[in-house]
Design a protein around this nucleic acid. Sequence first.
DNA 1: CTTTACGCCTGACGGC
DNA 2: TGCCGTCAGGCGTAAA
Length: 271
Amino acid sequence: MPELPEVETTRRGIEPLIVGHRLVDVIVRDPRLRWPVPVARLRALRGTRFERVDRRAKYLLLRTDRGTIMMHLGMSGSLRVLAADTPAMVHDHLDLVLDDGRCLRLRDPRRFGSIHCLPRGRDEHPLLAGLGPEPLDPGFDGAYLHARARGRSRAVKDFIMDGRIVAGVGNIYAAEALFAAGIHPGRAAGRISRARCDALARAIREVLRRAIEKGGTTLRDFSNADGDPGYFRIRLSVYGRVGQPCRRCGAPLRALARGQRATVYCPRCQH
DNA sequence: CTTTACGCCTGACGGC
DNA sequence: TGCCGTCAGGCGTAAA
């Protein structure tokens, strides 16, 4: 599932393929994403030119000279740039057709993804307004985490997955970062020392940075009709490894039921 | 204010 | 073999 590193890799993959090209058509095969696809507003952008692709949290922001197309890949979304006449497969819900006979094609089997259209001059959507800092930006560090965590009793795992605290940290990387920092996922966020907040912030940045780096080297290209989108995984320490031995101490990893989501951790290494 | 639960949706998987 | 129940998973929203 696309987490921040996959979204960032997608951004880097599609940006050079679409920038400078004009949007000439919009083909919507199924408008039923998380919210209905704003077909008319997308069509109104025909003729506009793509200027760059940004990312905020797990949202992709396709900047054009007349506004922004904001996309979320949900849990199963992927983007590729293909010849526009490439036969659409099932779950290929939308094409943004470019001026050179190619298209940016969105595939999303579970349809948890979304598309919004932002007019020029209002390039910040309300959904982005309350987001915390990007984990890879300088504003995110142990001091920040420590300050925000004061007085909070909620589990640190939920805390770092809250987009208002830090943007775009999903289940996989939250679990991995907590393992790397030696922090128990159920620990109250407000009961983590400043030093351990430093370690946690560092761990979050590091697992994301490594995954993005890995994406850059293992990902297939974004203009290949045959290849799968190429989502990848770094070598994971805890996620999906319940019952298997901890790579550090050998103890069997356990699952913690947090809400409905399970979190895997090492009972010996994480406190 | 904070925290929790739910619903959206389909593919994968286990049990029978 | 096929059918069915369960679950994962981000995240906005409603509820507590």
